[in-house]
Design a protein around this nucleic acid. Structure first.
Length: 269
DNA sequence: ATACAGGTCTTAA
DNA sequence: TTAAGACCTGTA
């Protein structure tokens, strides 16, 4: 067990924020997270958190996964006080963190996310994990499924994932898996690229456009300057930033602001 | 019923 | 180069 005190950290907000679809609310204050072959349970009450793992696993993996060493209070403090909308949005979602998630998982997840809703995206991810992932066992004897590897999906018929409810996105995922397995696109190379390089490279994948590429850059590669523009963000831009979002002011961490806006647009009544 | 979800691709001017 | 249309499917 690892017990920490942390401000600007909310499991509830992270779970709802639509960046991770392998995090589940088990009860009021208890959440579970699957990342690769790892399974974690975390409890939170106020700013007190208990991670159900040992010190070394926390230090080696989960601390980075939850971006716990980053100064989110600092990001919030630098918000233009004249920007009432952003001030409110950041206050509303002040416990959000940009997670460090697996690159391949984020590619598939955000291929599936397009023209889709969060509830259904969760179901799609669960379906492909149960159908094509590997069954794993927690020390407590609970079964969970790992995320399927590219090799597990690349050989499928292009419409095979429609049985997992992916709809027309099935062929995007199957073809993209093929691009990875063939070596046409290298996950290792992507991980070592700058934001503009990685974004350009990701756009070569079938089904990946600008918005999905930005989500992958933000949630897997941790390029915090990525600013995915979807239908909700567009609405906010039209309503509050008719001269465009002030990227210069938030240079290098626009992605954090994007998450506050996205979360506010979705969940503020 | 009908519009809409964390869009992208294809085709036609 | 830009602009409509098509696309799976559950939810409200």
């Amino acid at each position: 067990m690892v017990n920490i005190t942390k401000d600007n950290f909310s499991l509830e907000q992270i779970c709802k924020s639509g960046q991770c679809f392998r995090m589940f609310q088990e009860s009021d204050n208890l959440y579970s997270v699957i990342a690769g072959n790892r399974y974690l349970e975390v409890e939170q009450q106020g700013n007190q958190c208990i991670f159900h793992c040992d010190d070394s696993e926390f230090d080696d993996f989960w601390k980075k996964y939850f971006d716990l060493d980053n100064d989110y209070a600092g990001y919030i403090s630098r918000i233009d006080s004249a920007d009432e909308y952003l001030v409110k949005a950041a206050a509303f979602g002040s416990g959000i963190r940009i997670l460090h998630q697996d690159l391949w998982e984020m590619i598939v997840t955000f291929l599936i996310s397009q023209q889709n809703n969060i509830t259904r995206i969760r179901r799609c991810i669960n379906n492909i994990c149960e159908r094509y992932g590997e069954a794993q066992m927690t020390p407590q004897g609970k079964t969970f499924y790992s995320f399927p590897k590219p090799e597990s999906l690349s050989g499928l018929a292009e419409d095979a994932l429609m049985e997992c409810n992916l709809g027309y996105r099935s062929k995007y995922v199957v073809r993209t898996a093929g691009s990875i397995v063939s070596g046409d696109i290298s996950l290792d190379d992507l991980a070592n690229m700058s934001y503009p390089e990685a974004r350009t490279e990701l756009l070569k994948l079938y089904g990946v456009g600008g918005k999905v590429a930005d989500c992958i850059c933000l949630f897997a590669l941790h390029h915090l300057q990525a600013f995915p523009i979807d239908t909700h963000i567009n609405q906010a831009l039209n309503g509050h930033y008719q001269n465009g979002f002030p990227n210069d002011r938030y240079d290098g961490y626009q992605g954090v602001m994007q998450q506050y806006i996205f979360y506010y647009e979705l969940f503020n009544n």
